[in-house]
Design a binder for these strands. Structure first.
Lengths: 331, 331
DNA sequence: CTGAAAGCGCTTACAG
DNA sequence: CTGAAAGCGCTTACAG
């Protein structure tokens, strides 16, 4: 591996001149040629550690993600990565395997590694998160959860919940099981439910019950089984697509036909909801696009340019076979 | 951020002593105490760039992956990441979005960034890959494809193909469409097919046709539609789970019942194959475990310890509803 | 436009 | 056991 000194010698100039050339400073035509030639010969490329040591800062955006094997995470990461590349930044992923403590560690570790900025694909924001972010003084962007102290980019959970609620009501469903998740997850556990509730409050002949389950399919399946037994709803409105998949599994195993006997909706717009049969009606979020915006925003922040504190990403209801139109049914 | 010099002053010793303490050299009890105290007070932690600049080497393993949004990739990455963390190494992901040129660029870029080693989740190995690997002289490990020049860790594609072939024959299927992929992908396009062929050659009353499609679901769906029309197979043996999903979609849309009218098998063991209904019979590979082994191997290579050139990861046939037993059918 | 020198934060022989 | 000094590869004022 050649260094800047090798190039300087080869080109017959001082290394400060080479450095200036590399960084777009003023260099004479003749020297420029010589340096270019030397670089070509050696295949020289600067040592990023030496650069970072001087600069006390990198062009890397540390991205903390709770898991690698979810549609939402992957798509968001892809969006971030692609956009960052375009802007000549790099993405470094820290996977925390859904361990909040590891998120905190990652924040400090990223700061120590002189990341230019940090993006957190957030689930819960604890006091420790706040403390960590405040002590490291690195620009931060939250995705998926909002917090007054930090810049964030969220999906329109409330509005999606409201729209989904209206949709379900318009299709004629009135005996509804809302299968949600912990309220510690504000976006998924609170906002979607609140939006849904608002829609429900606009009608008065509705029998709705609210349940809580975990994010994974087997747990959702077990919950669905119980609820089917004790409540016999006409429809499950699920807080995530995975939970909807759990409901589907429960139905298969009980011989319940979808949508004839039971309807199901989700949130997320995971690919799998369109692959399976029947397809699941869902509120699709735009993870990749959100990732791209996030990348743009964090770079703005890194360069100390202003960014709106809160950005809300859009959504879209995708109608599929898992919901019937009760008004079209023969009596 | 405090530096080693701050610690040295605070503790009243030379920075070389602090450095020695940090790196486990011999330090007197009394000085040790003072240094520990100073580190605690300041929350000091060494600047990794300065360290890397000296060491000319990091403890980071660069991992090149063709895509982030596939089950196989995610699981493999999770395995690599977790194991690497245990061994005090870090993983850096480079996503190439299925662009072979970007893979080459990533190899050089990783070398430039002084990665301790490189893991490539390989699809095709071109001459440019070989040239790149040879010129950078960084330890390399291939996952998913084997190559005589490099250490590699593969799934047992041939044996899985063979076992799947025998399985299908034992269930009584004789009119078989094998839906494969390009032979440029040796593991998926060649090995699985070869194994399957071997099984077929052991019987003689078999009508098998071989087709080729792309890796994505819509392409597989289109291919399946054509094949159903022109060949009317009893079963599709698909080279990947995604292709099997494409066949399933084609069947849904044509009103073909699975497995009554048509059976389907895949390779991979993607989660989704067990979530949908009917579940897809598939040869499950152990991606996460493979990732863990890969992590162990690359670290061995980094430390110049011997590693077998080729490691073969296991597989397992998972029986689900997408394949019937023709011998059990009423006449 | 160009070069000499200092310094980023660390580690590593080399003395003592 | 401990410290002074050199050096890793780069950048950045500062002179000229």
């Amino acid at each position: 591996m050649s260094t800047i000194l090798d190039i300087a010698k080869l080109a017959g100039v001082a290394k400060s001149t080479v450095s200036r050339y590399l960084n777009g400073g003023s260099v004479g035509e003749a020297t420029k040629k010589k340096i270019e030639q030397a670089i070509k010969e050696t295949g020289y490329s600067p040592n990023p550690f030496a650069q970072s040591l001087k600069a006390k800062k990198t062009n890397i955006i540390g991205t903390i993600v709770p898991r690698l094997d979810s549609y939402a995470s992957s798509q968001t990461l892809i969006g971030i990565d692609e956009q960052l590349k375009k802007m000549n930044y790099q993405m470094l992923i820290s996977n925390t395997s859904q361990n909040l403590e590891r998120e905190i560690e990652s924040i400090y570790s990223f700061a120590n590694q002189k990341m230019a900025g940090i993006i957190l694909l957030a689930t819960e924001i604890t006091d420790q998160h706040i403390e960590a972010f405040e002590s490291v003084k690195v620009p931060v962007l939250l995705i998926g959860q909002e917090h007054e102290d930090f810049h964030s980019l969220i999906h329109d959970d409330f509005q999606a919940g409201y729209t989904m609620g209206r949709y379900v009501l318009e299709k004629g469903y009135r005996k509804i099981a809302y299968l949600g998740v912990t309220e510690r997850d504000i976006s998924v556990g609170v906002k979607r439910k609140q939006g849904f509730k608002k829609a429900i409050q606009e009608v008065d002949d509705c029998d709705v019950r609210f349940y809580e389950t975990l994010f994974n399919i087997p747990a959702a399946q077990a919950s669905a089984n119980e609820i089917i037994y004790e409540f016999q709803p006409d429809i499950f409105v699920c807080a995530t697509d995975n939970i909807a998949l759990g409901v589907l599994k429960a139905s298969y195993s009980e011989g319940i036909m979808i949508p004839q006997d039971l309807a199901v909706t989700g949130f997320g717009g995971y690919d799998v909801t369109g692959i399976i049969h029947p397809g699941i009606t869902t509120a699709k979020f735009f993870y990749k696009e959100a990732g791209e915006s996030a990348a743009r925003h964090i770079v703005e922040l890194v360069n100390e340019r202003p960014v709106e504190k809160l950005t809300v990403s859009k959504f879209e209801i995708i109608e599929r076979e898992s919901v019937d139109n009760l008004f079209n049914r023969p009596l």
